[in-house]
Computed example of a mutant assay.
Amino acid sequence: MDIHHLKYFVVLSEELHFGRAAQRLHMAQPPLSQRIKDLEKELGVLLFHRRRTGVELSEAGALLLEHARNVLDNVAMAQESMRRIRPGASGILQVAVPPDTNPRALEAMVSSFASAAPDVLLNLHELTTVEQVERLRDGELDVAVVRHPLSSVGFESGPVASKALGVVLNASHPLAALSSVRLGDLSGNPLIIFPRHMAPPLYDSFLQTCRDAGYLPAAIVHARNQHFTHGLIMAGRGVHFNEEPWTPLPDGIVWRPLVGDPLAWRTSALWLKSRRSAETDAFVEAVRAGLAAGGHG
């Protein structure tokens, strides 16, 4: 039984409404509903009665709630105990970066932090923006490297660095013959983009910028993995926005800058004020150095 599933269950038990619970958890409603269904399937019981106006705890749900709260309280106490005994300069820093972080940027972050805090173990995680924010709030991360825009209420942020994005096209596409591409000229092409649940504000911002520039995609295709994305482009299934490649692209696809740089990765470190320490300050500075090494300005 996943500890996160228990947390979702408790929040829904308190709100008795999927929409309010999802908002409180900083996640979309469909994945919350799915995780509750997964928990019910695992336990073999119905935890909630679904109503038009919300949900009600079932008898099994009420029984689980008593146990779940105790489990979460004990986990929180264990985490706090570990934080208290963490020996500062010889402790562990839990950090996370986006799945598509530029390798040069990541290498520079790790090297810079190792130089500044050689006795601190850096435990790196590859997480989406939604996962990063959730785990920061839960105290499972000390610092996250996030993409903006996002809701940063309750957090502190380092300097936001920007890196312009271009478009990845099939080499036979008519626009591939140009040295740069106007965003509006892509209208009618399917767009290959990360799933919305990974970073809802960023996803919405991308699509709004496309609409404002006159790019109306013929379809939206969701892809997480770079190889899958490249395969779709090679098959002529759409175009994709990303930063300039740091290694050669596969034969059959090309990258072109966008005129006026309308799209960009806007990235910074993010942390809870209550978790700030000399170690987190050192990593925030390492993030700045890493982003600069990765071409962010």
Results as ranks from 00 to 15, higher is better:
residue 1 M to Y: 08
residue 1 M to E: 08
residue 6 L to W: 09
residue 17 H to M: 08
residue 20 R to V: 12
residue 24 R to G: 13
residue 24 R to I: 05
residue 27 M to D: 03
residue 32 L to R: 04
residue 32 L to K: 07
residue 35 R to E: 11
residue 35 R to D: 08
residue 35 R to Q: 15
residue 42 E to A: 13
residue 43 L to E: 01
residue 45 V to P: 08
residue 56 E to A: 14
residue 57 L to N: 07
residue 60 A to W: 06
residue 60 A to E: 03
residue 63 L to K: 15
residue 64 L to A: 01
residue 65 L to E: 09
residue 66 E to A: 13
residue 72 L to Q: 00
residue 74 N to W: 09
residue 77 M to H: 13
residue 84 R to Q: 14
residue 84 R to C: 08
residue 88 G to A: 13
residue 89 A to M: 10
residue 90 S to T: 14
residue 93 L to E: 01
residue 96 A to W: 03
residue 96 A to M: 06
residue 97 V to A: 06
residue 101 T to H: 07
residue 103 P to Q: 10
residue 118 P to E: 05
residue 128 T to S: 12
residue 129 T to C: 11
residue 130 V to A: 05
residue 135 R to A: 01
residue 136 L to A: 00
residue 142 D to S: 10
residue 144 A to T: 05
residue 151 S to H: 10
residue 157 S to Y: 05
residue 159 P to R: 13
residue 159 P to K: 09
residue 160 V to M: 06
residue 164 A to H: 09
residue 165 L to Q: 14
residue 166 G to Q: 00
residue 170 N to Q: 12
residue 182 R to H: 13
residue 184 G to L: 04
residue 187 S to H: 08
residue 187 S to E: 05
residue 187 S to A: 09
residue 188 G to V: 06
residue 193 I to A: 05
residue 194 F to H: 08
residue 197 H to Q: 14
residue 199 A to C: 02
residue 201 P to K: 01
residue 203 Y to M: 08
residue 203 Y to S: 06
residue 211 R to T: 13
residue 212 D to N: 12
residue 214 G to R: 02
residue 215 Y to C: 07
residue 215 Y to W: 15
residue 224 R to N: 11
residue 227 H to M: 12
residue 234 M to F: 07
residue 237 R to Q: 15
residue 239 V to R: 09
residue 253 I to A: 00
residue 255 W to M: 02
residue 257 P to G: 03
residue 258 L to T: 01
residue 260 G to Y: 10
residue 261 D to I: 09
residue 266 R to D: 06
residue 271 W to H: 07
residue 271 W to N: 04
residue 277 S to N: 04
residue 280 T to A: 08
residue 285 E to C: 11
residue 286 A to I: 03
residue 292 A to D: 06
residue 295 G to C: 11
